[in-house]
């Protein structure tokens, strides 16, 4: 009886603690938010106002269009290349690290934390570090995106593979199939839709990030924006922004379309 009472009072304390912590966090967020809401609203308004006034991509900017599309294409290609290479590496790491597909306990223990660390270092930090070794070249941006994407995709792929579950693997093991036949004919087809979905998400993200990395590494469309901006060619800089927005939306739309086709 006394034990039961103790049990329930313990339960009550735990619940109070959890509830109290949540409430405190909520209040904190509230305070932070209220301060920011006004600032953010006015800031964004002012920003857009200034943008519309100064950056309107008027006719005088259009001669720059050729240069811009060139650099934009280069940036998009770097992002796609980095993502594809990262996906290949990440898939192998995920196969070695996922509970369902791994035969190596050591790899399982190492890959998860490794991927987390890689993923949690922002690509900007990667870019800054890599600038020392590779200077301001497109390769620096490529590598920065690659390293971050490997971490991110390894985590995502590993979870996807684990969700496929043991049933699929057992079914093919029962036929006497070997490891790689089981992976290629069983696990990957079963996981194809979510794997491709992650890949597309990563490509979208990397195209956005690539423009930013370009500013740091002095390459691609990011560099072009920087250049125009600093030489007061605001209409041309505005054109860059518009072009980036258009391409991002186009990529997003085609990715959505591709996902629909895959899931059908």
């Amino acid at each position: 009886m006394a034990e039961l009472t103790r049990y329930f009072s313990h339960q009550r304390r735990v619940r109070l603690l959890v509830f109290g912590t949540l409430l405190a966090l909520l209040l904190l967020a509230q305070v932070a938010l209220q301060l920011n809401v006004i600032e953010a609203a006015t800031g964004v308004f002012a920003g857009w106002g200034w943008l519309v006034a100064n950056f309107a991509p008027i006719a005088s900017a259009f001669p720059a269009l050729g240069e811009i599309s060139w650099q934009l294409a280069a940036t998009v290609l770097i992002a796609i290349a980095a993502t594809m290479v990262a996906a290949g590496v990440a898939l192998l790491l995920a196969l070695a690290g996922a509970r369902t597909t791994s035969h190596w306990p050591l790899a399982q223990a190492l890959i998860r934390p490794f991927a987390s660390i890689m993923r949690n270092i922002p690509f900007v930090a990667w870019a800054l570090v890599l600038l020392f070794s590779f200077k301001q070249t497109p390769f620096t941006g490529f590598l920065a995106l690659l390293l971050m994407s490997v971490g991110y995709l390894t985590r995502a792929f590993m979870e996807t593979l684990d969700e496929v579950g043991h049933g699929v693997i057992e079914a093919l093991e029962a036929t006497g199939a070997g490891y790689w036949a089981i992976i290629c004919q069983g696990v990957l087809p079963a996981a194809a839709a979510p794997l491709v979905s992650w890949l597309l998400y990563m490509i979208e993200n990397n195209i956005r990030d690539a423009t930013l990395v370009g500013m740091l590494t002095g390459t691609g469309v990011g560099f072009l924006f920087d250049l125009y901006f600093k030489s007061f060619r605001y209409p041309a800089a505005g054109l860059v922004v518009c072009a980036i927005i258009l391409v991002t939306i186009a990529i997003e739309l085609s990715a959505t379309k591709l996902r629909q086709v895959l899931n059908a």
């Binding site: 049933g167 057992e170 036929t175 006497g176 199939a177 036949a181 004919q185 069983g186």
Partner: peptide, 30 residues
């Protein structure tokens, strides 16, 4: 199996063909 354990996105035919994977060498199997 109780839960069939088929490769759901693949066709019935491809699932049946998986019964031959035990006889295959590395590359044809993959």
């Amino acid at each position: 199996f109780q839960d069939y354990n088929l490769i759901e996105p693949l066709s019935a035919l491809e699932n049946v063909l998986h019964g031959t994977l035990g006889d295959k060498r590395l590359l044809p199997g993959m």
